[in-house]
């Protein structure tokens, strides 16, 4: 069944059961997001970028975790929504190593796209939380433990899409979040044995990464 909803005074139709973020994106209304992909059963709502205001609700809510309802009235560009998005974005950037010129994601990077959309620069308003060694040497860390991929923890935004796509492709995830808090990284632990890997055949995690934090070794 199709439901009618009103977004920024624009009438759209959305299928029942869909989440609000997907409904907006399908109708050409962009809401910044990093950790969401189409048809995700349980959106993680971890990037904190897809906030919207819904009439009747006190505070802005992440649109990926809201299911569309008939007659819903939504605003995607109120001052409080933008404030939340900019704060979340700057927090993400506070642990992001910026060297766009030599970064393989340059020009197709989600962060650049979101910065442009939110009309903010890529320099964080918050103190940088990069590891000491990175700040001192001006060189980012590289995890080269995987035989095929390189992982760049200081680029990674920890959206978890690589884990999600790996799990949906192979039934189990061959990578994982490791450690916690500010030290959290993606880890390929235990998958160093090339014979057990899908190898060059599966580049799902490389292709889905919005910031090129996982790249093919042969290309870097």
């Amino acid at each position: 069944m199709m439901l009618n909803i009103l977004i920024d005074d624009k009438k759209i139709e959305a299928e029942e059961g869909k989440n609000l973020l997907q409904a907006c994106l399908d109708n050409g209304i962009y809401i910044p997001n990093l950790c969401h992909v189409k048809d995700m059963a349980h959106p993680q709502a971890s990037c904190r970028l897809c906030f919207v205001e819904i009439e009747g609700e006190k505070k802005p809510v992440p649109s990926c975790s809201v299911t569309v309802r008939e007659g819903m009235r939504v605003k995607t560009d109120t001052p409080s929504v933008r404030r939340l998005q900019r704060s979340a974005f700057h927090l993400l950037l506070s642990r992001h190593f910026i060297e766009c010129k030599v970064c393989p994601a340059n020009r197709k990077c989600e962060l650049q796209k979101i910065a442009k959309f939110l009309k903010v620069g890529l320099k964080s308003n918050y103190p940088l939380l990069l590891p000491k060694a990175v700040l001192e040497t001006g060189k980012q860390e590289t995890d080269e433990s995987h035989p095929i991929f390189n992982y760049y923890p200081n680029r990674c935004v920890l959206c978890g899409l690589c884990i999600h796509v790996c799990r949906t492709t192979h039934g189990i995830a061959l990578l994982t979040f490791a450690k916690r808090g500010i030290d959290t990284v993606i880890s390929f632990y235990g998958e160093e044995d090339v014979s057990r890997l899908p190898g060059d055949k599966c580049l799902a995690c490389v292709n889905i990464c919005p910031v090129s934090a996982i790249t093919l070794k042969s290309l870097s």
């Binding site: 189990i172 994982t176 490791a178 450690k179 916690r180 390929f188 632990y189 235990g190």
Partner: peptide, 22 residues
């Protein structure tokens, strides 16, 4: 030991590592 645990519980090695490092 991490490999042994993963094999016994039939879960990926990296998942055991992820939990343990947390």
């Amino acid at each position: 030991a991490i490999n042994t645990v993963a094999a016994h519980l039939e879960i990926p090695v990296c998942e055991v590592y992820g939990v343990a490092t947390f």
